[in-house]
């Protein structure tokens, strides 16, 4: 019996190396290697390093080696009123910026979508997207000049109108609003883009039916457009939320977080403590906390996307 089975199986040939690489079990991993190497060097190792460092007391300027301090840094951060203030300022910034950008983006998107036959629409759309493609540092510098009380165009307009010239970025009451405005200017186009994408996903027949059924503007928006477009809009809102939470360069370039700390969002706090005070251990711990907050946003985002998949799957079952 054993003999027979041996005789029937083909003689084993040694597998060549290229054959081995081409096997179904090997090839996918092989293709992943370059990305994995990159990811490990630039992402995983620094993150682990950061995590490790957050448990040490370590200041670059002290000249002393890092001392293990357990949760000392985290404890210190959670009891630091400046951090809490910075975080609440950041959340206020995120809520206002993303909220206003979403509403404006939706309105502008609807406007562009409803004016498809107007001449100059493409040019207007291209111009509208310009702020989004500029680097934040360039935009920051540019707006700092606009806001400048002496040389800025806003100042001269105010003076021309006989109004007092305002120091937008230097006034503690105005700076936060001025910075917020620039973020809105910069990122509303993104929400316009997302709105246009969302509108493209609305079936034409349903819009026509809404017209024939004489639905009001609001009913059409709520029952037809938002029903079909809400996932894309949600995606836009979440991307913007994560991004706005990390905003640093744009604000730093305009106000350095000032005057006082009125525009100091948490990312600027982190930058200052790390690269101006060189308290690396403490800053690492703060970075870990911010990372966890970002992960929470991302998790929400993934959950929302998956809930759509689940919904589609159940719809597909229904269709079958």
């Amino acid at each position: 019996m054993r003999l027979a089975s041996k005789a029937s199986s083909p003689p084993r040939r040694r597998q060549s190396f290229t054959e081995f690489l081409g096997r179904r079990e090997v090839m996918p991993f092989l293709l992943l290697v370059p990305v994995l190497i990159f990811f490990i060097i630039w992402n995983t190792i620094p993150t682990l390093w950061l995590l490790g460092l957050s448990f040490y007391r370590f200041s670059l300027t002290s000249g002393r080696p890092p001392i293990f301090a357990g949760f000392y840094n985290f404890d210190s951060i959670l009891n630091d009123s400046a951090v809490w203030l910075g975080l609440s300022r950041t959340f206020l910034f995120v809520i206002l910026a993303v909220g206003i950008e979403t509403v404006l983006g939706l309105l502008l998107g609807l406007l562009f979508w409803g004016s498809q036959k107007l001449p100059g629409r493409r040019v207007a759309l291209t111009l509208l997207f310009t702020p989004m493609v500029l680097t934040p540092v360039a935009s920051g510098t540019f707006w700092r000049l606009i806001y400048d009380p002496t040389f800025g165009i806003l100042g001269s307009i105010f003076r021309g109108l006989g109004l007092p010239s305002l120091n937008f970025l230097g006034d503690a009451h105005l700076a936060f609003g001025a910075v917020l405005l620039v973020d809105i200017w910069m990122w509303t186009p993104f929400m316009v883009l997302m709105t246009l994408a969302a509108l493209a996903s609305v079936p034409k027949a349903e819009l026509e039916a809404a017209e024939i059924d004489q639905l009001s503007w609001w009913q059409r928006l709520r029952l037809v457009i938002l029903y079909h477009g809400k996932f894309i809009l949600m995606l836009g809102i979440l991307l913007r939320t994560i991004d706005a939470f990390k905003t640093m360069d744009l604000i730093y370039d305009m106000t350095f977080g000032g005057p006082g700390s009125t525009t100091e969002v948490i990312a600027i706090t982190l930058y200052r403590r790390a690269f101006e005070d060189f308290t690396m251990g403490w800053s690492s711990a703060l970075a870990v906390i911010l990372l966890l907050i970002s992960i929470a946003f991302t998790a929400t985002f993934i959950f929302v996307l998956h809930s759509r998949d689940r919904k589609q799957a159940s719809l597909a079952e229904e269709g079958a």
Binding site: A205, A209, I212
Partner: peptide
Amino acid sequence: PRQRNVAMVFQYPVMYRT
């Protein structure tokens, strides 16, 4: 279409899903 006051049934059932 709004001003003409007509009703229409489409090839695919159009409905307000919510």
